[in-house]
Simulated assay, not measured.
Amino acid sequence: MSLNRAAHRPGATTGSPEGIPVTSVQAGAYEPPLLHPVHRIGARTLDFRRRVALMAIINRTPDSFYDAGRTFALGAAVEAAVQAVHDGADWVDIGGVPFAPGPAVDAAQETARVVPVIRAVRESSDVIISADTFLPAVAEAAIEAGATVINDTTGLSNPDLARVAAQGGVHLVITHSLAAPRTAYPAPQYGDVVAEVAEFLRRRSDYAQELGVSPEKIIIDPGHDLNKNTLHSLELTRRLAEIAALGYPVLAAVSNKDFVGETLDAAKPDRVEGSLAAGVASIMNGARILRMHNVPAASSAIRMTEAILGWRAPAYLRHNMGDSNAAAGA
């Protein structure tokens, strides 16, 4: 597969909303051949040629992977979502069931967990809202409450989910995973994990379109750690450009995952820096959405990366800009 690197000439400049020329030197950054670069998601428009969206994670579950129930209470979940928007999130992903193996949560219970949060956040913000679910009934209720994306971590295990997304006119995230929902998949084996994940996502994206989902509303996620070991997830991060080459915006869900912990020998509270490094590496390899827990740190990392790539101007220019420079660090 041929992967074209950035074609911008070193030293070329582009304009910015602030009127400040921004140097566009993108050596080493992969620019994916996006089939539909500009996405209108609810009230917001994202141009993924020059923008990375930050998705905040809101888990309304008592046994979530990272926060262990910190946002299970309704008030805590709504407060966390509103705070995430304040801290720089473009998007909040609201889920009521963990991906990890465990007992089934019926549609009524899951709906009762996620819909009040979606409704409250929608009333206060035009932020992008996704419902993290694989149940069509939950997706339908979430869309009615104001969700503009359905985030399916099971790779369309239920085709009716795609039909609901199509009927609702919302975006659909298709994630690579092998196991049936909430079941274990011991010692997963791949011949070439990246090639196999790419082929899975290509086939599932085609299937979603057969079920009525418009191609401009498809987002793909290689599923770091989902039925994959640490070596698989590192390989996916290193070769993420091969996933992005499919032409759909790529979501990288790398936050605080076990592949970060095992690589750095770090417990969950100590994985922030590793998660940010994995996120930046993903952006450089074509990811356009990062799903992260630690929103302020992730927002700073994303916006700094955008500035380095020439996509956004600095917030201000002062250092060495005048006749004299009395500031420290001259």
Results as ranks from 00 to 15, higher is better:
residue 80 A to P: 04
residue 23 T to S: 12
residue 79 E to F: 05
residue 59 N to E: 08
residue 252 A to P: 06
residue 22 V to A: 10
residue 268 K to I: 15
residue 14 T to R: 15
residue 287 A to M: 07
residue 323 D to M: 07
residue 94 I to Y: 13
residue 281 A to H: 03
residue 241 A to D: 10
residue 188 P to N: 09
residue 111 T to I: 05
residue 321 M to K: 12
residue 297 A to C: 07
residue 180 A to H: 12
residue 300 S to R: 15
residue 23 T to K: 10
residue 281 A to R: 12
residue 306 E to Q: 14
residue 119 R to D: 09
residue 278 A to C: 10
residue 202 R to L: 06
residue 11 G to R: 12
residue 301 A to C: 05
residue 309 L to I: 09
residue 7 A to Y: 10
residue 310 G to R: 04
residue 153 T to N: 02
residue 153 T to S: 05
residue 31 E to H: 13
residue 162 A to K: 01
residue 260 V to E: 11
residue 239 R to E: 09
residue 252 A to M: 15
residue 318 R to E: 15
residue 78 V to M: 05
residue 307 A to W: 09
residue 159 P to I: 12
residue 1 M to R: 13
residue 154 T to F: 03
residue 169 G to N: 03
residue 154 T to C: 02
residue 222 P to H: 13
residue 54 L to F: 08
residue 101 P to L: 11
residue 81 A to G: 10
residue 287 A to L: 11
residue 164 V to C: 00
residue 281 A to C: 11
residue 208 A to I: 02
residue 240 L to C: 13
residue 189 Q to S: 09
residue 103 P to R: 15
residue 291 R to P: 00
residue 297 A to P: 00
residue 20 I to N: 12
residue 216 E to P: 00
residue 294 N to R: 08
residue 199 E to G: 01
residue 9 R to H: 12
residue 238 R to L: 12
